[in-house]
Design a binder for these strands. Structure first.
Length: 121
DNA sequence: CAACTGACTCACT
DNA sequence: TAGTGAGCCAGTT
């Protein structure tokens, strides 16, 4: 017993966890690679998450455009344009510098989308 | 089997 | 305030 696995608390591939966590993110909300990695079970695997997004064979099937850097900026010079476009379509304000306010759109990890008013400022 | 890369993050200078 | 370096994780070659 006690399968000594330094990593992978679950037999499920890290990829799967990231996908599930990403699919949990409601529209109009964004998460950072670190947050997504945390939900996936690896708070330090932000890099791995980024790679999965770049490799994501699901393409548009996966809301990878909701994943941004911890600085609130869109990474990937090749995709940041489309990312910002999709985020704006979901109601997320993306600055001309491809910057998103995590304080407003940063997902807390709660699927409860009660931002109906979203005008508290 | 081992090494390098990469859509990251944090800390220090 | 901005820029640079080292660390960490998973996937690819």
């Amino acid at each position: 017993m006690a399968p000594k696995r330094k990593t992978a608390p679950k037999p499920e591939p890290f990829r799967r966890r990231v996908e599930e966590a990403l699919l949990r993110v409601p529209a109009g909300r964004v998460v950072t690679y670190g947050q997504l990695a945390l939900l996936a079970g690896r708070p330090r695997a932000a890099r791995a998450v980024g790679m999965l997004m770049a490799q994501n064979p699901y393409g548009e099937l996966l809301p990878c455009h909701r994943v941004i850097a911890a600085s609130g900026r869109l990474s990937s010079r090749s995709f940041r344009v489309e990312q910002a476009r999709r985020l704006r379509e979901e109601g997320v304000e993306v600055s001309a510098d491809y910057r998103v306010d995590l304080s407003r759109y940063g997902w807390d990890g709660v699927s409860e989308e009660k931002e109906g008013e979203a005008g508290c400022e």
